[in-house]
Design a protein around this nucleic acid. Sequence first.
DNA 1: AGCTATGTGACAAAACTGTGACACATATAG
DNA 2: CTATATGTGTCACAGTTTTGTCACATAGCT
Lengths: 217, 217
Amino acid sequence: MNVLLLEDDKSLGATLKSRLEKEGLTAHWVSTIQDAKQLVDEQTFQLIILDVGLPDGSGFAFSKYVRQKTNCPFIFVTAQTSAEDRLQGYELGAVEFIPKPFHLKEFLIRVKNTIQLHGSDEFVMDDLKVNFNTLTVEINGQSSEFNLKEAAVLKMLINLSPKVVSRDQLLDHVWGEDQFPSQRTVDNVIVSLRQKLGSYSVLIHSVRGVGYVFKKN
Amino acid sequence: MNVLLLEDDKSLGATLKSRLEKEGLTAHWVSTIQDAKQLVDEQTFQLIILDVGLPDGSGFAFSKYVRQKTNCPFIFVTAQTSAEDRLQGYELGAVEFIPKPFHLKEFLIRVKNTIQLHGSDEFVMDDLKVNFNTLTVEINGQSSEFNLKEAAVLKMLINLSPKVVSRDQLLDHVWGEDQFPSQRTVDNVIVSLRQKLGSYSVLIHSVRGVGYVFKKN
DNA sequence: AGCTATGTGACAAAACTGTGACACATATAG
DNA sequence: CTATATGTGTCACAGTTTTGTCACATAGCT
């Protein structure tokens, strides 16, 4: 799960990022709306956690930007906690509203609940539907299943699309920085991915000398 | 859906009861812990919404009483909203904590989320009928009984369907975050569930490396 | 003690993974 | 243009990991 954390308090941001990662999530932490916009344009997230009072604008405004681009669920974490603030948050499409200050345990409980309830980890394009939760891919109703590595590789390619992802990046991210399988291993995963993607296999291009790209159309 | 509303503010209580009923729920409204205990002893509820500051005691205390008797989810609605209060609420097993004052719309959004996440205590599909309250399953009239763990696991799978539930999620939710049975334990519960589900056992799929899914057809 | 509910360990079965070999493709130099 | 070097696609095999299942141990209750 790819999580975007937008929080300008350095200490809090660092803490939350580390706790989210302990939960097995991939957390990206930025402290300005500008940086957040850039990340949202570059990657896809399954959850966004954001403050309202930020140095370069209001989290409420940013949440509108997010809504236009994706349907990613988001959680407000803020000291502005009046009934009106909360209602505004929920009406903007928030799925949670956590008032500051809070205890970490409460934060984690509520984030977990949110992920269980709203966290759909899907990629859809035309007749192609990939579900990273059930590790399945459906093409024109025909479905087949991924294994863990395949899913992780495809997810990374899609998340970073249209950037080229090197084999080393894949090995680091998917296999872990302490594992050193041969680079042929990556190719093999690509092979089986392509088989399972059928006619959509052409979306995975190989870039000679570098790695692979997923091109959305 | 049977909902218990424990709120001593007459005006607020009446409003909430009426709004809950507009949502199609059956709402019982009482204003004292004494009355609430009596109702809890007499009936089964699928959701309890309660204030903390009550004329004849603390809602926190009552929530402990509830926990002993049932596993019904409950939501605190209260003006005591410090981080400590909220944490205490969540640690007592609350699934939501709504600070006063609030707008009705926020209240309804959060109640609906809760209901969706925790579901009802009966599940019916074709010839399959599962009752999580009496811990029974009936298939074509043939009935058998679950034990507590089996029921809790099945309920979680069904409530989150079609999402995959990891063994860790199951261990946290069913066994508790402070218990650490082996993951084999989960598999064994799945085995006995499958046995009791007979021909419907195929609905429980395992997702290698992740966990299990319940697929409603 | 007898009973039930629950957790554990062992082992087989199934699925996944990484490797090397080889064919094929693409770049670069001559 | 051809030869050579290098990168990539694909396959089958064997080792590893995960899961299904069973028999048994333990705990708590009556």
